[in-house]
Computed example of a mutant assay.
Amino acid sequence: MKAVVVEHFGGLEEVKMADVPKPSPAKGEVLIRIRDAGVNPVDWKIGEGALKDKMPHEFPLILGWDAAGEIAEVGEGVKGFKVGDAVFAYCRKQVVRHGTFAEYIALDAKYAAIKPKSLNFAEAAAIPLVALTAWQSLFGFARLKEGDTCFISAGAGGVGSFAIQFAKWKKATVYTTASSNHHGYVKSLGADHVIDYNKEDFAEAIMKHEPQGLDVVYDCVGGSTLRASFPLVKKGGSLVSIVNFNVEELGKSYPIRTGFVFVAPNGEQLATIAGLIDQGAIKPAHTEELKLEEAVLALKKVKAGHTQGKIVLKVS
């Protein structure tokens, strides 16, 4: 099968098309014929070796962790799926090698879910990693609830766009940052207060509205944005980051809960999210579809940042 691989860590110049063996499903696995694969910042980071000390890798390494497609084969003992089912999944494995920038992937069946019926494959492929990240951060770690106030940085991004919607679904008050050309987009997702980080200090703007502090801060940016966010959280509140591994160390002097979330595959949560999408409670992210052969261009665009929504690769 054709796939986008790296044979050793390095820059985007190491990313190339290759012919690799087609996988077969083991016991408890399904083989997914991939129609579209989502592109995420972690993909170029994997290629550069940024996570080589966090998880084992093997080469040649197929990039990509998001997929939407159809069940091509069902392994022994699998229940709930049949050949031809349209599914989507976050496909990270314990050893990073077999990714989704390829025509097929064999995956533990419990990580897959039936694709939202209201979405096409491109829209569905843009969802798993970012939606699960937002879900597990806001509800798993931060325990966001109705009536809470929260700040979500980078609201127009892939994770931010779902985080805003999940927070509004829980009837929380949402503050977010976005450049002026993305204000209409994040407002359409439900953001109550949108701050242009190019024109004003987001922390000062939030404290004018919430002098008592926020219940939850969701950091999708890191760096100076994260450092300025700690004082925004009220005593006993939560700050969760998906960027800084050392967030607990940075926030230890504040009387708040801090934590880093690295998203885990979860088919049950994906099924719940699919239901919310089909009910109209959650809208898919704005999606730009490129060809699999344009993977390097897609990775360049994601690495440059400032994208609205998600980029996906059309595989078949």
Score class of each variant (00 low, 15 high):
Gly157Cys: 09
Ile206Val: 13
Leu138Val: 08
Ser180Trp: 13
Asp192Met: 11
Ala125Arg: 05
Tyr197Asp: 04
Gly158Asp: 03
Ala167Leu: 12
Phe151Ala: 02
Asp196His: 10
Phe121Pro: 00
Ala124Pro: 02
Ile127Thr: 11
Asn198His: 15
Gly158Phe: 05
Val130His: 06
Ala126Pro: 04
Ala142Asp: 00
Lys115Tyr: 09
Glu123Val: 06
Gln165Arg: 04
Gly190Ala: 09
Gly155Trp: 00
Val130Trp: 06
Ala142Met: 02
Phe139Asp: 00
Ser153His: 10
Asp201Gly: 09
Lys187Gly: 07
Phe202Asp: 01
Ser179Thr: 15
Glu123His: 03
Lys115Ser: 07
Lys145Ser: 14
Asp196Pro: 10
Gly140Phe: 02
Thr176Gln: 08
Tyr197Trp: 10
Val174His: 07
Ala126Ile: 08
Ser180Thr: 15
Lys171Asn: 15
Glu200Gln: 14
Ala163Lys: 01
Glu210Asp: 12
Asp196Gln: 13
Phe166Met: 08
Lys117Ala: 14
Leu119Glu: 05
Leu144Val: 05
Lys115Arg: 13
Gly155Lys: 01
Gln165Val: 08
His193Glu: 13
Glu204Ser: 14
Asn120Ser: 12
His182Trp: 06
Leu129Lys: 01
Ala167Tyr: 00
Leu189Asn: 05
Val174Leu: 12
Lys117Phe: 12
Ala203Val: 11
Lys168Asp: 04
Glu204Asp: 14
Val130Glu: 07
Asp148Asn: 12
Pro116Phe: 04
Thr133Tyr: 05
Ala167Thr: 03
Leu144Tyr: 00
Ala156Gly: 08
Leu119Trp: 09
Val159Met: 10
Gly190Phe: 11
Gly184Ser: 14
Ala124Phe: 09
Pro128Tyr: 05
Asp196Tyr: 11
Asp201Lys: 09
Val186Thr: 09
Ala205Lys: 14
Phe139Pro: 02
Tyr175Phe: 15
Ala142His: 01
Lys170Ser: 12
Ala122Met: 02
Glu200Lys: 09
Ile164Asp: 02
Glu210Thr: 09
His183Glu: 12
Lys171Leu: 13
Lys199Arg: 14
Phe202Arg: 03
Lys199Thr: 15
Lys145Gln: 13
Thr149Glu: 06
Ala191Cys: 10
Val186Phe: 01
Pro116Tyr: 05
Ala163Pro: 00
His183Ile: 13
Ser118Thr: 11
Gly147Glu: 05
Asp201Thr: 10
Thr133Gln: 06
Ile195Asn: 04
Ile195Leu: 10
Met207Val: 09
Leu138Thr: 01
Lys199Glu: 15
Leu119Thr: 04
Trp135Met: 10
Ala203Lys: 06
Leu144Cys: 00
Ala122Gly: 11
Phe139Met: 12
Gln212Thr: 13
Cys150Glu: 01
Ala156Val: 07
Leu129Arg: 00
Ala122Arg: 01
Lys199Asn: 12
Ala167Asn: 01
Lys171Arg: 15
Ala203Ile: 07
Leu132Val: 03
Lys145Thr: 13
Ala126Cys: 08
Leu129Gln: 08
Glu200Phe: 11
Ala156Asp: 04
Leu132His: 00
Leu129His: 02
Lys187Thr: 15
Asp196Thr: 14
Pro211Phe: 07
Ala126Arg: 06
Pro128Asp: 02
Ile164Pro: 01
Asp201Pro: 07
Gly140Gln: 02
Ala134Arg: 01
Gly147His: 00
Asn181Val: 15
